[in-house]
Design a protein around this nucleic acid. Structure first.
Length: 582
RNA sequence: CGGGGAGUGGCUCAGCCUGGUAGAGCACUUGGUUCGGGACCAAGGGGUCGCAGGUUCAAAUCCUGUCUCCCCGACCA
């Protein structure tokens, strides 16, 4: 029942990693026979991967069901109309795969399912008495990533567990959000991942508050700022920090123009002869926020964070302006731009600049800059608004305590959002509340990247010989190897395997006619947690060799006891069940 | 979308510069010897050199176009 014979299994292991693999999980998933690539960001999941994914999904189902989740299975193919209703047919832009049917009708492949679940709510829910509802599915998502990479970490087709909560009010949403947060913590813990929950940017999802679940690894693409002293942790797309105050002189009564021919960068202005420190410069960036040109101002030595600008502008999409879009608005080219008394477009100024005086910035005239600029007097008094725009850096002060922030790379494995009424309003999903008033349903949205759990587990747990699976998500819990062709070895191995099967342990029986070395190498590569080797030496004493992939010495155990020992280990490793407190 | 790199048996690659009709290792098949950490010997099978044009007596090799994959960037004016 639980036994797979290696001699008949499809486990195509490789001695060499594919040349194009960069990160550990990608190399090992290919080498160990879990995946093959079909196209850029598109992978075949072979039987080993499917087994591990099934285990991850089973854990997710248990925990989602434990908080009252009800599983659905919705289409991946969506008529354009529903996405047009929410406005995201445009918002998603190139990221959405689009196609036409034979009649020329527009369709998209689902990137996420807010619209579809909301449409069900709209059609079927009438009363607050039917709420709350927690709906979820485990489904394939399609996203036309500009740049797929790193094996399973950034792909164009992947599996997501997406859940949606439906409540009559915000208080209900808050409860559902906390339920999901706790469920997520249990899911990732059970999958053997070390993770942190961080404050996050909501992006194209919208909504008021969101948390990302992050695994700290250099294979990740996000940056997290965290304080080791308190619990503060945030994606750098939202993280804030204390900035050391700058001592500004009184400055000038009026900004003063001076010639800076050929000076087009912060660095050039910092160099002789002008010698203006970057910290005294205002960097002026031109962006397009939903078709509208906007101006963003940050300190010369700091970086604008586009996600923060998106939040500040309230736009759905933000991109840098093209060079040719700038002069008609500003009257100058990039390199000489400034926002002093500028009113032709919205101007956003980084909050940390509010009190600065005697600053230098472009004059909006090619070849000239202004000095003596007072942010309050020359920008804020002319309609510019303060906003959180800058990207925090390691070493800056924690915004919550007097600690110092560290910044590390992390991989996002889950994200929960308080959506509020964004989708219920745009799609018209309402119920009558207790007073008989029609109110939009208050929603939350909760996603987990299933393959990312798989890949993250490998990034966290591997060594030079291969993968070291957590027992909970390993494709097999145990493997039994025969170390030689002798019939008595095989007979003893069969006995152990039968025992394991009886105990309900998943087992891969390496019955191949291969040398011992090959079997050891493959067992290590594939990363099966419990290895039981049947060899002549041990068997002479009625014993087999017990070894854990995660480490530790080889132990000799009687043939008759191996299965029980494995079963005991499996039982002991089972985390507190659904809903129980850890 | 910009820049860089790469497409040659299943895999990892050499050959290309300097055109002359395709190679190595691994993998695979058969036989033998082996058998506790990716064995050895012998004999084999397998490649329209991404695709399409062009140059040439002759193209994996030179030229043009095109497709695909990988990496960096796509903000720092």
């Amino acid at each position: 029942m639980h036994v797979v014979r290696y001699s008949q299994a499809f486990i195509p292991t490789l001695k060499e990693a594919p040349a194009d693999a960069q990160v550990a999980s990608h190399k090992l998933l290919v080498r160990a026979g879990f995946i093959r690539q079909l196209g850029a960001g598109i992978y075949d999941y072979l039987p080993l991967a499917k087994r591990a994914l099934n285990k991850i999904e089973a854990i997710i189902r248990e925990e989602m069901d434990a908080i009252g989740g009800q599983e659905f299975f919705l289409p991946a193919l969506h008529p354009a109309e529903i996405w047009k209703e929410s406005g995201r047919w445009e918002v998603m832009g190139e990221n959405m795969f689009r196609l036409k049917d034979r009649k020329g009708g527009d369709y998209g492949l689902g990137m996420t399912h807010e619209e579809i679940f909301t449409a069900i709510a709209r059609a079927e829910l009438r009363s607050y008495r039917q709420l709350p509802q927690v709906w979820y599915q485990i489904q394939t998502k399609f996203r036309d990533e500009p740049r797929p990479k790193s094996g399973l970490l950034r792909v164009r087709q992947f599996t997501m567990k997406d859940a949606y909560s439906l409540d009559v009010d915000r208080a209900g949403l808050d409860l559902r959000y906390e339920d999901e947060r706790r469920a997520y913590e249990r899911i990732f813990t059970r999958c053997g991942l070390d993770f942190v929950a961080v404050q996050a940017h909501s992006g194209s999802m919208g909504g008021s508050e969101s948390s990302e679940f992050m695994v700290k690894t250099d294979a990740g693409e996000d940056l997290v700022a965290a304080c080791p002293r308190c619990r503060y942790a945030a994606n750098t797309e939202t993280a804030t920090a204390r900035v050391a105050p700058e001592a500004d002189g009184p400055g000038l009564a009026e900004p003063e123009k001076f010639a800076t021919p050929g000076v087009l960068t912060i660095d050039a202005l910092e160099a002789a002869p002008h010698s203006v420190p970057a910290r005294r410069q205002l960097k002026t960036l031109i962006y397009v926020a939903d078709e509208e040109l906007v101006v963003a101002v940050v300190r010369g030595d700091q970086e604008l964070n586009e996600a923060k600008l998106q939040t500040a502008t309230g736009a759905a999409v933000v991109r840098p302006a093209h060079p040719e879009e700038i002069p008609p608005l500003m009257g100058a080219h990039a390199g000489s731009l400034g926002a002093v008394r500028f009113t032709k477009a919205k101007v956003f100024v980084d909050r940390s600049l509010a009190e600065r005086r005697d600053m230098v910035t472009g004059a909006n005239e090619d070849g000239f800059h202004l000095r003596g600029v007072d942010v309050k007097r020359d920008l804020l008094a002319h309609g510019a608004v303060l906003a959180e725009l800058r990207t925090v850096k390691a070493g800056e002060g924690c915004p919550r305590c007097d600690g110092t922030l560290e910044v590390f790379k992390a991989l996002e494995i889950g994200h929960i959002f308080k959506l509020g009424t964004k989708y219920s309003e745009s799609l018209g999903a309402t119920v009558l509340d207790a007073e008989g008033k029609q109110v939009p349903i208050v929603m939350g949205s909760y996603g987990i990247g299933v393959e990312r759990i798989l890949a993250a587990a490998i990034e966290l747990h591997h060594d030079d010989n291969g993968i070291v699976w957590p027992l909970s998500i390993a494709p097999f819990q145990a493997t039994v190897l025969t170390l030689g062709p002798e019939p008595e070895l095989r007979k003893a191995a069969e006995e152990v395997v039968a025992g394991l099967a009886r105990e309900g342990v998943d087992v891969l029986f390496d019955d191949r006619d291969e040398r011992a070395g090959v079997k050891f190498k493959d067992a290590d590569l594939v990363g099966i947690p419990i290895r039981i080797a049947v060899g002549k030496k041990g068997l002479a004493k009625g014993q087999v060799e017990w070894k854990l992939r995660a480490g530790g010495a080889v132990e000799l155990v009687p043939v008759a006891e191996a299965a029980r020992k494995a079963a005991a280990l499996v039982a002991a490793s089972v985390k507190p069940g659904p809903g129980e407190r850890a």
